[in-house]
Computed example of a mutant assay.
Amino acid sequence: MSMPAPRNSLTDIAGLRVGQVHDAAVRTGVTVILPDQRAVCAVDVRGGGPGTRETDALASHTLVDAVDAIVLSGGSSYGLAAADGVAAALGARGDGFALFDMPGVPKSPVVPSAILYDLANGGDKAWGEEPPYRALGKAALAAVSDTVELGAFGAGHGARAGLHAGGTGTASLDLSGEGGRVAALVCVNSFGSVTLPGADDVYWAWPYEIDGEFGCGRPPADWRPAPEDWGAAKMQPGPRENTTIAVVATDIALTPAQAKRLAIMAQDGLARAIRPVHTPFDGDVVFALSTAARPLGKDGEVQLARLGSAAADCLARAVARGVHAARLATG
């Protein structure tokens, strides 16, 4: 039987570490996912208002087939500068991509990123010409560890999940047999609701909860959702005011095309946990990472289907875990 790995976290994938920092005055933050070795990466973008950097380079037909880090950030378009800070710090270490080693020519770190909108959350955004995100990116890189904090941490610090506090969540599964491990990390800032209409203590992800990990109630036996009852969704969104951004990862070796399929399948986890999702107001983005610690089995496509299904389950659980932790912290 498949169960969460020991940390129930993205860092259950050996070779991945996570850094989270935030600025409480600005009410924003940054999360960095750092592989020990450059890792195969793909991305799937479903939201109507995405904000991303270097995602075109992740297509399976392009030159670059691995990344040095992934950055998730608040700050809308300003937050894309967080990846500048990470790339600069990694380049100073000598990390990055190069076709040839040439003396005096720095390598080029490949640092895809995605942002969410937290500009209207009441924090002090009077930063003039010096937004804090480049510095926050460097600080998050310096803070990488095996620990992922749940709730108002990292890029999820200033987030809102519908009418509830949003935040950062994570979850993992250790698949039985030779299935490998899969895990997810998400920063939830959705237009849609994560809880059932009329049952605010019940998360849409309730069928996927394991061992009470997000304190979820259960819907009444006769409960049925009305066709357009969105419950605790944000009902007056402005342009780009939302977005749920996530990373799923596995220790199984995948090609860029297979990682893309993993990201596509993982998006279903957002559909299981948020209603509605992928709206014109959201910029939903899911990255997929492979650390290639274990080989893909002889029944590779079947194993990939299993990984994708598990990634979707992990992502749904991570959404509920993150929001639940944020709600507990805010009372």
Score class of each variant (00 low, 15 high):
P103Q: 01
R93I: 11
A88S: 12
L90A: 09
P131H: 12
L116V: 06
S108I: 15
L163D: 02
A83K: 08
E178A: 14
T168M: 06
G91W: 11
A120C: 14
L163A: 15
A165H: 10
A165P: 12
D101W: 05
A140I: 02
V64T: 13
A126D: 13
P131M: 11
D124P: 14
D174L: 04
V148Q: 00
G167Y: 03
N121L: 00
D118S: 05
A143N: 04
G151N: 11
I115Q: 01
L175S: 01
D118P: 02
V110A: 05
P103Y: 02
L119H: 09
L150N: 01
T170F: 03
H157L: 00
S172H: 07
Y78N: 14
G74S: 13
L119R: 09
A126N: 14
L99G: 10
G123H: 04
E178T: 15
V110E: 00
H157E: 00
D95S: 15
G169E: 02
G177Y: 00
S108F: 13
D174Q: 15
R160P: 00
D101E: 15
T147S: 12
G123W: 08
E178H: 14
D65I: 09
A120W: 13
M102L: 15
L90D: 01
R93E: 12
P131K: 13
G151R: 00
G177H: 04
T62K: 10
A81T: 07
L116H: 08
I70L: 15
M102S: 11
G162Y: 03
L150E: 00
G128I: 12
Y133I: 02
S113P: 07
G166F: 01
G85D: 03
H164P: 01
A139P: 08
A92H: 14
Y78S: 14
T170A: 11
G158R: 03
F153S: 13
L141S: 03
H61N: 13
I115E: 02
G162T: 01
D146H: 11
A82Q: 10
L63M: 14
A140N: 06
P132A: 10
D84H: 12
A98R: 10
E130W: 12
G104Q: 07
G74E: 05
G91V: 02
K125I: 06
D174M: 08
Y78G: 12
V105Y: 09
E149N: 11
A83V: 06
V111M: 01
V64N: 00
G75E: 07
R160K: 02
V71W: 08
D84R: 02
G122T: 04
E178L: 11
L63F: 03
L63R: 11
P109K: 03
R160E: 15
G85K: 04
D146V: 02
E178G: 15
A114N: 07
V111H: 08
S113L: 02
G96W: 00
D95W: 10
S172R: 06
A165R: 12
D118M: 06
A82P: 05
H61C: 07
A142Y: 04
A83E: 12
A126T: 15
G177Q: 01
W127M: 13
A161D: 02
L116D: 05
S108Y: 08
A69D: 04
P106L: 11
S176N: 11
K107V: 07
D65W: 00
A142D: 15
A87G: 13
F97S: 04
A159G: 10
A83Q: 07
V67C: 14
L116T: 08
G154L: 01
F100S: 09
L80F: 07
Y133W: 12
L99W: 13
D124Q: 12
A66Y: 09
S176Y: 04
